[in-house]
């Protein structure tokens, strides 16, 4: 029903031609090589297979077709997954006529397009995040970890730390493991070294 509505909508645009309409992934994969569209509007949520898989397969087999992802999901994980799989645009299903047409034209001209809400979501996800491993700035240390780290630097044993902070030894061990992971250290010595290097306990 949604696809038919789209067909009517896009059929009204003078510079567009709706050259195919598929209801599921299998149909899409069959039709695309036959009609070779400039732009494919691809729903992520297909009845038989994920749109993600369709995107991946088409990218490999039909590299010239521009893919505009249409989705109900305004989630960063879906957006970046589609981009990584080679989609050139991503718009939400409730996008209006004007914006949708602009998106299709942009893709046809070889540009990329993301609707405003999608861009906002991407912006939000870029902020204040950190992965483990090599980093140029010190990771954020939680209050508890800071206390544990301080006592480790004071040469306290796990038992002593647990007693001082009213924690179980197991919890202290978990904090220690998290500290090792985020400071990229292998043992207590490495932990102390990293703590001094980043001047973690000084502010």
């Amino acid at each position: 029903m949604f696809a038919e509505g789209l067909e009517t909508m896009l059929g009204g645009e003078p510079d567009f031609e709706v050259c195919g309409l598929a209801r599921n992934a299998a149909d899409t994969l069959k039709q695309v090589p036959e009609v070779e569209p400039n732009v494919l509007l691809l729903d992520i949520n297909l009845p038989d297979k994920s749109g993600l898989d369709v995107c991946k397969q088409l990218r490999a087999e039909q590299p010239d077709v521009k893919i505009l992802a249409l989705s109900m999901h305004n989630d960063e994980s879906y957006i970046s997954a589609m981009l990584n799989l080679g989609a050139q645009g991503y718009v939400l299903k409730n996008t209006g006529r004007t914006e949708l047409c602009a998106a299709i034209r942009a893709l046809a001209e070889g540009r990329t397009y993301f609707s405003q809400e999608v861009t906002d979501t991407m912006m939000q996800s870029l902020m204040r995040e950190r992965k483990g491993g090599t980093a140029k700035e010190p990771p954020k240390i939680s209050r508890r970890e800071r206390e544990v780290l301080k006592l480790i630097m004071d040469e306290c044993t796990t038992q002593e730390i647990a007693a001082q902070l009213f924690l179980s030894e197991k919890t202290v061990e978990s904090h220690r493991a998290a500290l090792l992971a985020k400071l990229g250290a292998r043992n207590t010595a490495g932990l102390v070294k990293a703590a001094l290097h980043w001047k973690i306990l000084e502010d």
Partner: peptide, 27 residues
């Protein structure tokens, strides 16, 4: 579809979108 870390990240992005708190996310 994408596992725990990404789902949690989506959750945080959503909460951030709602406004007030500053949320740091580390994994």
């Amino acid at each position: 579809q994408f596992g725990l870390m990404k789902a949690v990240r989506d959750l945080i992005v959503r909460v951030r979108g709602d406004g007030v708190p500053t949320i740091d996310f580390q994994h």
